[in-house]
């Protein structure tokens, strides 16, 4: 996925908007990447998005997507329920992730999970493992992983996360400066914002702008204009 909104223009086809079923053509010997499949020797776009060519790899940057968990992802989960020893976290994927009490950062008594995390509360956690049927296990053991007690959680589509972070984290820094707030972007598209009311409001409107116009060039200029 490209780091900013301007697609690389090294190849004529790159950045072109493609639709499902479109024959991409002219990619002999290339490898089919994300959103592309080789059918009867031809490269076929499998989803709506911008065509990307990276060396020998042809792929598509999707314009809409749902979060698919991967092991190691930093995500923000919302507690949806619990049993005596497990919490169920909504991480924005098709399925809830489980957080066993053994992977919580506290000493939890069997049956006392609700004392530490209750329904509706948000946690910063990491995906520990995902199996082939998309069942995920989350962990809160690790640096910086914690319960989120203040601030608010905003949702963005997962495919625009690279634009929210920007090249080398430049966009993220710009957003932090804009609202003078703390910001954590989860790989599942949830963004935790913590700061003063006005700052958080500014960041929310900036995120809305990114959400609406992430696929159009000149995103950075629009965000910078917000701060002026």
């Amino acid at each position: 996925m490209s780091e900013d909104s301007t697609p690389s223009e090294q190849d004529s086809g790159a950045g072109r908007l493609v639709h499902p079923g479109e024959r991409l053509g002219g990619h002999e010997g290339a490898e089919a990447g994300h959103g592309v499949r080789r059918i009867d020797g031809q490269m076929v776009a499998m989803r709506m998005g911008n065509l990307q060519e990276n060396g020998q790899m042809v792929s598509i940057d999707p314009l809409s997507s749902r979060y698919v968990p991967r092991a190691g992802d930093l995500v923000i989960g919302l507690v949806e329920g619990m049993t005596n020893n497990i919490w169920f976290l909504d991480i924005g994927a098709s399925f809830n992730a489980i957080l066993p009490m053994s992977l919580a950062p506290w000493k939890v008594e069997f049956g006392a999970v609700r004392e530490h995390l209750n329904v509706g509360e948000a946690v910063l956690c990491r995906v520990q493992e995902v199996d082939e049927t998309q069942s995920a296990v989350a962990t809160m053991k690790g640096m910086g992983l914690r319960k989120l007690k203040s601030g608010l959680v905003e949702q963005i589509p997962p495919h625009i996360i690279p634009q929210v972070i920007g090249k080398g984290g430049s966009m993220l820094q710009a957003l932090k400066d804009l609202g003078d707030a703390r910001l954590v972007v989860g790989q599942n598209g949830r963004v935790w914002i913590d700061g003063e009311q006005d700052g958080m409001r500014d960041i929310r409107s900036a995120l809305k702008l990114i959400r609406d116009t992430a696929h159009l060039p000149g995103l950075r200029e629009r965000i910078d204009a917000l701060g002026e």
Binding site: P20, G21, R47, S64
Partner: peptide, 12 residues
């Protein structure tokens, strides 16, 4: 609508 939702499809 399926294409708009980003669901992978071999054709419409």
């Amino acid at each position: 609508a399926l294409a708009d939702a980003g669901i992978p499809m071999s054709d419409m």
